[in-house]
C-alpha cells in the first residue's frame, strides 16, 4: 500500500519513544559529570613525574638527565639541573631537577619523553579535566604540580606500573648484591627483597 513505509517508520520511532521510558538499556547516554565510564588503560594525555615514598621532593625518580627535554618534539619541557645531589632509590647520589616545567599548552601528548626516559621517572597521566582561567601561568606546570606518587601511577596504568616496579626492584637488588660483598664479604648469598606482587 501507499504510505506504508511512512507508517512503518512512525511505528518504529514510537517504539523508540516509549521504549526509552521502559527499558534503561535503550538510553546509552552516560550522564557525564555524575557518572563516568572507566578510562581505558592506554588512555593518556599529559606527562607527570613519578615519585616513590611519601615525600615528593625526596622520592622524585627524575635525575635531571635532560634527555626528555632534548627529545621533546614541540620543546615543551624545561629542566634546570640541581647543583647538589640526593640519593636515588638505590642509594646512589644523583642530580635532581631544580626546575621541571611542562607547558601543557604546547605538549602534544606524543609520549616520546616517556619512551626515552632511562629512569622511568616520567609517565603519561590520564586526567583530562584541566581547564583553567589562566591560559599562560595556569597551563605551565612546575615540578610540584607534576609530581605524583607511584601509587597513583599504579591506579591509572596498573600493568605498566607493576612491570616498572619489578624492573626497578631487580635493579636495586642487583645494586645491593654488588655493594654487599665489598662492605661485608660473607659467603651467604644476599637475598633480594621480595618483588612486588606479580600481576
Amino acid at each position: 500500500m501507499l504510505g506504508e513505509g511512512i507508517l512503518k517508520g512512525l511505528v518504529e520511532t514510537a517504539r523508540n519513544f516509549f521504549g526509552s521510558y521502559v527499558s534503561k538499556d535503550r538510553l546509552t547516554t552516560v550522564q557525564f559529570p555524575e557518572e563516568r565510564l572507566p578510562q581505558p588503560e592506554a588512555a593518556r594525555n599529559y606527562p607527570f613525574l613519578v615519585y616513590d615514598g611519601g615525600d615528593w621532593q625526596a622520592g622524585l625518580r627524575c635525575v635531571a638527565c635532560q634527555i626528555c627535554e632534548k627529545e621533546c618534539p614541540p620543546k615543551c619541557i624545561f629542566i634546570e639541573k640541581s647543583t647538589d645531589k640526593k640519593p636515588d632509590y638505590t642509594g646512589k647520589p644523583q642530580f635532581y631537577p631544580a626546575t621541571f616545567n611542562i607547558d601543557v599548552s604546547v605538549c602534544m601528548s606524543c609520549q616520546i619523553c616517556v619512551e626515552v626516559c632511562p629512569f622511568d621517572a616520567i609517565e603519561m597521566d590520564n586526567a583530562f579535566e584541566l581547564s583553567t582561567t589562566d591560559r599562560f601561568g595556569g597551563l605551565l606546570w612546575n615540578r610540584e604540580q607534576l609530581a605524583k606518587p607511584n601509587s597513583y601511577f599504579h591506579n591509572i596504568h596498573p600493568a605498566t606500573a607493576t612491570e616498572i616496579d619489578e624492573r626497578l626492584a631487580a635493579a636495586k637488588a642487583k645494586a645491593e648484591a654488588k655493594a654487599k660483598p665489598a662492605d661485608a664479604p660473607t659467603p651467604t648469598a644476599p637475598q633480594p627483597e621480595p618483588p612486588p606482587a606479580k600481576s
Binding site: 520511532t13 523508540n16 519513544f17 521504549g19 526509552s20 521510558y21 538510553l27 546509552t28 547516554t29
Partner: peptide
C-alpha cells in the same frame, strides 16, 4: 525532550 526520546536519548 521528545526528539531525544525518539532517538533514545535523554
Amino acid at each position: 525532550k521528545g526528539l531525544g526520546r525518539f532517538q533514545n536519548r535523554y
